[in-house]
């Protein structure tokens, strides 16, 4: 793909870069900030984020969302998905977007069920 075909705007056009190199450094700074926030939260573990929310701690939800944000920018800007045709974009992203959440849902539900069985069952697991 020729150099002048790069889409140089990120954050839905909020931030426009003059050249592709500048965009790369900009994305690096953004990813670094997100990672620093993650590490900071992981070390401090603020008490108000330790509350349960949808069967997980709120802090863990924040970690997962920040991870997905990072994954989006790595795929979109470093792997140039932003510059691909919409057909290629869809055929890469859609299978993952459909299959992975489905797998996560059924497997984690099963794990939770087995936890309940082991806790409430008649067999002792801790002897």
């Amino acid at each position: 793909m020729a150099a002048d075909q790069h889409n140089l705007a990120i954050f839905r056009g909020l931030l426009k870069f003059k050249s592709n190199q500048q965009k790369i450094w900009g994305v690096l700074i953004f990813l670094s900030i997100v990672t620093i926030i993650e590490v900071f939260l992981g070390i401090v573990k603020p008490q108000f984020l330790m509350v349960p929310f949808l069967r997980m701690k709120l802090l863990n939800w924040i970690f997962i969302i920040l991870t997905l944000v990072k994954a989006y920018y790595i795929a979109w800007d470093f792997m140039h998905i932003r510059d691909e045709t919409s057909g290629l974009k869809g055929s890469i992203v859609l299978p993952l977007l459909i299959l992975i959440p489905y797998l996560v849902f059924i497997i984690l539900l099963e794990g939770d069920y087995i936890f309940d069985v082991m806790r409430d069952g008649f067999v002792s697991w801790n002897f």
Partner: peptide
């Protein structure tokens, strides 16, 4: 990517268990 998600999800399974 699907292979790795299989691994990470099975980690999640054992963790939930």
């Amino acid at each position: 990517a699907l292979t790795f998600s299989g691994f990470l999800v099975s980690y999640g399974f054992s963790r939930y268990k």
